[in-house]
Every structure is written in C-alpha cells, then in structure tokens.
C-alpha cells in the first residue's frame, strides 16, 4: 500500500508541475485576451494605491512622493479636528443615512404596485417612463430642477396659485435647510423606476403555486402580498441593502456637486465635494488623500460588517 502510494507520488508530482506549464501554454490565447483587462486594472486600480502613502506625508508637489517628508498620522488628526472636515463627515452621514434607510422602501413598493398592474400594455408604458430619468446625467437633472424651482419656474407659479396673492416667490435651492430633501427626492425621482427592476425580477421568480395555495386558503390580493411576496423578496432586499451600506459615507458626487450653489456650498459640503475642492482645486494633496482614504476604509468596513450581520440573521450575504 505504502509502496503504491509512493509510486503514485513519484509519477504524479513531476507530471503535475509540467502539466501546469503545458496547460498555461495551451491557454496562451486566453492569457493574451485577458491581458488588456489585467493591465488596465493593475495600472488604474492598483498602481494608485501606492499613492495612498502621501496620506502619511506632507506631499511635496515638485519633488513628488520620494522627496516628501513623512508626518505620520498628522493629516488624519487634522481631519478630525478641523471643523470644515468634521462638518463634511456629519453632513455625509446625515444625507446618506436618510437616503439609505428611508429611500429603500420606495422602489420595493413601486415593484409591488407594478406587479399588481394587470394591463400589460399600460404597464409597459408606465415602466418605460419610470426608467427614463435613470439614463439622464445628474447634471441635466440638476438643470431641469433648477429651472423647475426658479423664481419664474413651475414650483413658484404653482404655489402662487394655491396660496394666493400673499405668496412670496423664493428659490428653495438656495436654502441649505432644504438640501437634504432635495437630494432625497431627486434621488427617488431619478432612480425609483430603475431600482424597482431588480425587485420586480425577484417577484416574477416567485413560485406561482404559492399564490394558488394562498388563494385556496382564502387570501385576498393584499394578504398574498403581505404573506408571500414580501417574505420571498427579503433575500433580494438584504443583498441590495448590504450593497448600499457602502454609500453611507459616499454620496453621489455628481448629484451633490450639481445641486450645490454659492449660497449653500459651505453649509452642505460633504466628503466627496470637499476632497475635490481641497485636493484638486486647492492642491492640498496629502490632506485630501487622507480624507478619501478614511472614507474608503469606512465604506469597506461597513460592507463587511453589514454583510456579517445580515448573514448571521438571515443567511443571505454577498460573500
């Protein structure tokens, strides 16, 4: 038995290593077509990671990374002590947590309602229209809404007809108090239709015999939704929620930057926009890199933690 095993090893080991090379040679065409993707990822995703070292440096613009002086965690200390940065962190968490927690039910509800629509043609038209805003760039959406809320725009005209003569026209986009609401509702407006697709697909995948059984048991449409559709949707909801938790510290730059204007910019600064203004406009590279690094680390940690918790509770996870 032992001898047999040894013999096997002897014959297989050299063959194994040889076959690796020969297998690689056999697949050389595959490596060739894989190469562009690998090169692009290494250059544009991994190479910049070495640049993160400047978060611990006082970056010298002329000398570059090698000539810069190491300052340890000074930049990170600055971030948490300078009011400008702490305000940006607070704003980011405030804006995005509202979007994450209060925004999640909207596309789910829309998907449930779509599912109840029985007229196929009408349903298709409504769906097409609801997906449409998703394909517009944030900046044109900003343009549309700034015209909508302008002093001579629809909003003020509409309010004037409702309230009457006493109504004083004002542009609500220039008041920082409204910024959260603007971000929330424009986000819903732009993405609700599109985000409903994934839930609708999950609903379509539910076994129809479940509904038949429920109908026999005397469940009406409302109860079917409550006891079958929603429980069957929970895994999908969990996955979407996990994937969205990363956004707790990352707001959509295009949206926030677009809706900011000179009246409210300082009040509504978030991490992304501050990194852009401090880093690219004011050339404070080290400070902004540290800020961006903090953001990236937190969002990665959030995904891991949420994934862990959700997996514990419901058994569904992204890895």
């Amino acid at each position: 038995m032992n001898a047999l095993n040894r013999k096997k090893e002897e014959t297989f080991k050299p063959l194994g290593s040889k076959s690796l090379l020969s297998r690689m040679a056999k697949y050389r065409f595959l490596y060739l077509i894989l190469a562009p993707a690998l090169i692009l990822v290494l250059v544009f995703c991994y190479l910049p990671m070495f640049g993160l070292v400047i978060a611990f440096q006082d970056y010298d613009i002329i000398g570059g990374i090698t000539a810069s002086e190491f300052v340890g965690f000074d930049n990170f200390v600055k971030i948490f002590t300078m009011p400008k940065f702490t305000k940006a962190i607070i704003n980011t968490v405030k804006y995005s947590s509202v979007q994450l927690f209060l925004g999640l039910p909207f596309p789910i509800m829309l998907a449930l309602l779509f599912n109840e629509l029985r007229m196929i043609r009408f349903k298709r038209i409504v769906q097409t229209i609801s997906y449409l805003p998703y394909f517009l760039s944030w900046i044109s959406v900003v343009g549309m809404f700034s015209a909508f809320f302008a002093l001579d725009g629809t909003y003020n005209t509409f309010m004037a007809t409702i309230v009457g003569e006493s109504y004083e026209a004002k542009n609500i986009l220039t008041d920082a108090e409204n910024f959260l609401g603007i971000l929330f509702w424009t986000n819903i407006w732009k993405n609700i239709g599109w985000n409903s697709i994934i839930f609708l697909a999950a609903i379509t995948g539910i076994d129809p015999t479940l509904y038949e059984a429920a109908m026999v048991d005397g469940c009406n449409r409302f109860k079917q939704v409550l006891y079958i559709t929603i429980p069957c949707l929970l895994p999908t909801i969990a996955i979407i929620f996990i994937m969205n938790t990363a956004s707790l510290v990352t707001l959509n730059f295009e949206q926030v930057f677009g809706f900011q204007n000179i009246y409210i910019q300082e009040e509504t600064e978030v991490i992304n926009t501050l990194v852009y203004r401090q880093g690219i406009l004011n050339a404070e590279y080290s400070l902004s890199t540290a800020f961006g690094m903090f953001q990236g680390a937190v969002s990665f940690a959030l995904v891991c933690i949420t994934n862990f918790i959700v997996k514990r509770v419901s058994g569904v996870g992204i890895w």
Binding site: F44, C45, L47, P48, M49, F50, G51, L52, I54, V275, Y276, G279, I280, Y285, S288, T289, G292, M293, Q295, G296
Partner: peptide, 10 residues
C-alpha cells in the same frame, strides 16, 4: 479604491 487624489497624481 485608492480615491480621487492618488488617481489624479498618477
């Protein structure tokens, strides 16, 4: 991801 600024420098 490395973030905006390291990408910018690269």
């Amino acid at each position: 991801s490395a973030g905006v600024i390291p990408t910018f420098i690269l």
